[in-house]
Simulated scan of single mutants.
Amino acid sequence: MNLLLSNDDGIFAPGIRALADGLAVAGHQVTVVCPDRERSATGHGLTLHKPIRAETIESLFHPQIRAWACSGTPADCVKLALGALLESSPDLVIAGINHGANLGTDVLYSGTVSAAMEGTIEGIPAIAISLASFGDVDFRPAARFAQVLVSHIQQQPVDSAMLLNVNVPACPRHDLKGCKITCQGIRRYFDQFERRIDPRGKVYYWLAGEVVQEIEDAPHPEWDPATTMAVKALSTDVAAIQQGYISITPLQYNLTAIRGLTELQTSFDDIDKLFARFIADMDHTS
């Protein structure tokens, strides 16, 4: 397959090398476009007010891999690759291997997930893969699972509007319990801003935080009973990792709150009256 790889840990991160080299050895055509430095937790930010530069990188990856270091964000990297660097569209976009989990609400901040989601937005199936540890540096199990997953997708393609968010426990192979299709959980953090003073006497803040609560999302009220039961039977990504399972969570870029549509249709039963009040207020104040 023709694969485009990116990450948010930067071009020199060990996770991207393990991922790219393993896929190249498996016979895939691999192109790497990554940030030129650490870009974690940048979300889906884009660079709009300054130029984006891309530098060819040699002798870092497998000889068959083409690689660039990009001055932009992870989303910039994928957007630039698809719009300027690649001669043809890839079959699959893969972001990772991230050094640390991307579980629950982490996906809203993750540069790794955002890089993969940029592929999904362009109609290309995508995978975000993370090693669920900030301490462990053995990316080989996650890299091997990526190879198996890509091979499976090659035989059984997934919906191009779907992103697979994969998290791999950082444990020895014999401790892995299996693989689960999961729902996105919810992680609440206790955010703490540490106040510091620089050598020139200026105040600055350093953000730190830790997970204090992990909960399951409530079922959508418009789901039919069969759907509700099916979803409730699934584990969350957070729980799967805690239990030693590899989690695969399907994500999408459409963030419409479906149940909110029903609620708003009830609370705004006559939307035309709301607009008329707005126009009247504008006329009164002008």
Rank of each mutant, 00 (worst) to 15 (best):
G10S: 12
A13W: 03
L23T: 06
L23K: 14
V33I: 11
P35N: 05
R37E: 12
R39I: 00
H44P: 05
T47N: 03
T47S: 11
K50S: 14
R53H: 12
A54K: 09
S59H: 15
A67Q: 09
W68N: 02
L80T: 12
G83K: 07
L85A: 03
E87P: 04
S88F: 06
S89V: 11
A95F: 03
G104Q: 10
D106S: 06
D106T: 00
S110I: 02
S110V: 07
V113I: 11
A116T: 06
A116F: 03
A116N: 04
M117R: 00
E122T: 00
E122D: 05
I124Q: 10
P125Y: 01
I127M: 07
G135Q: 12
F139E: 02
A142C: 08
A143E: 06
R144V: 08
Q147D: 02
V148A: 12
S151M: 07
D159L: 00
L164G: 00
N165A: 14
V166C: 03
H174E: 15
H174G: 01
K180V: 00
I181T: 08
Q184N: 13
G185L: 05
I186F: 14
R187M: 13
D191C: 06
R195S: 13
K202S: 11
Y204L: 07
Y204I: 10
L207F: 01
V211K: 11
I215C: 01
D217C: 08
D217K: 15
A218F: 11
H220D: 11
P221M: 09
T228E: 14
A230S: 11
V231F: 01
K232A: 15
A233F: 01
Q243M: 05
I246N: 05
I246H: 01
T256Q: 13
T266N: 10
F268L: 13
K273C: 12
L274R: 09
F275M: 10
F278V: 07
I279Y: 11
S286M: 06
